[in-house]
Amino acid sequence: MTLPTHVKLVEVGPRDGLQNEKETIPVEVKIELVDRLTDAGFVNIEAASFVSPKWVPQMATSAEVMDRIRRKPGVDYSALTPNMKGFEAALAAQADEVVIFGAASEAFSQRNINCSIAESIERFRDVAQAAKQNGVRLRGSISCSFGCPYQGEVAPDAVADVVRRLRDLGCDEIDIADTIGVATPAKIHAVYETVAKDYPLAQLSGHFHDTYGQALVNIYAALQAGVSIFHSSVAGLGGCPYAKGATGNVATEDVVYMLNGLGIHTGIDLDKVVDAGEFISRHLGRKAASRAGNAIAAKRAG
């Protein structure tokens, strides 16, 4: 089975990774983290979220972060935009890409935002149109694509339905996310085989959580299925609020180490990612949740 020769890694640590941290993180730390990740070679960094500070206080400094980071040509700095107010803030902050989102689980959609999947996607129509009118890249993200904390199993056809809805809004890329980290390789193959009938495989990404220790093997399964875009979080930042004790996002260091071993080109400097992971972990006062990162750091310390 032929694996992709190149993979695009989307670094989500500065947004998805930090948003649930209880202690307020100084804006200077967030800026330095993004700058370190830029220097490490990422071409897409999720740097901000323009949501109500009442709901996600950690992201209240997003405009300042976007204003002060050292931007590198060719790098897309993304922002989560839940509504038109968020989109307008992202546009003012010169976001290169905006992210809209839905769920593949009706139960999840009803429990979290009190509306159906169809209604939730329809709410993004104005954001999608505005993104297109302003030449801003549009990415869609589908949570609970492999399982839901409320309804359990999620059928591949349910994921495909949301893919079609996001495709019709004009999304340039669509994330298939394992929000609670329950997927295994067989489910990975089943979902991608189904959704690729409605949307180009080259524009589908994998966003896998490591709750059950399956993220790396799931990435490998997705590579086998032809997926070549993956999300990861430096130092394994970010828990999952729906699964107690969940480790959340797969660690970027572990993903890059594996891809390097497979001879797959990412353009990412692993040593610089380890440095970035050590930097943010020192600030948070805890060890990084990255096995490869911690092993490399220990080897350096000798």
Rank of each mutant, 00 (worst) to 15 (best):
T2D: 13
L3A: 05
T5H: 14
H6R: 15
V7I: 12
L9Y: 04
V10C: 06
E11M: 07
V12G: 04
R15W: 03
G17Q: 07
E21K: 07
I25S: 06
P26A: 15
E28F: 01
E28W: 02
V29K: 08
V29Q: 09
V29Y: 02
I31D: 03
I31P: 03
I31W: 08
V34E: 05
R36C: 01
L37D: 03
A40Y: 02
G41R: 08
N44L: 04
F50K: 01
V56R: 10
Q58A: 14
K72T: 14
K72G: 01
S78H: 04
L80W: 10
K85R: 15
A89S: 15
A93H: 06
D96V: 10
D96N: 15
D96C: 03
E106P: 06
A107G: 14
F108M: 10
S109C: 14
R125N: 12
V127K: 04
Q129T: 11
A130L: 07
A131Q: 07
Q133V: 00
N134C: 11
R137D: 01
I142Y: 01
I142T: 05
S143H: 04
C148I: 08
C148V: 07
P156A: 12
D157S: 12
V159Q: 05
V159T: 10
R164L: 08
R165A: 15
E173M: 13
I174R: 02
G181I: 12
A183C: 13
V195A: 04
A196C: 11
L201V: 10
Q203N: 14
L204A: 10
S205H: 03
H209P: 00
D210V: 06
T211W: 07
Y212V: 00
Y212I: 00
Y212G: 00
A215F: 06
G226Q: 06
V227T: 05
G239A: 10
P241W: 04
G245H: 05
G248E: 09
D254C: 03
V255T: 14
G261T: 14
G261N: 14
L262D: 10
K272M: 09
V274P: 02
G277V: 02
I280E: 01
R282C: 05
N294Y: 00
I296K: 07
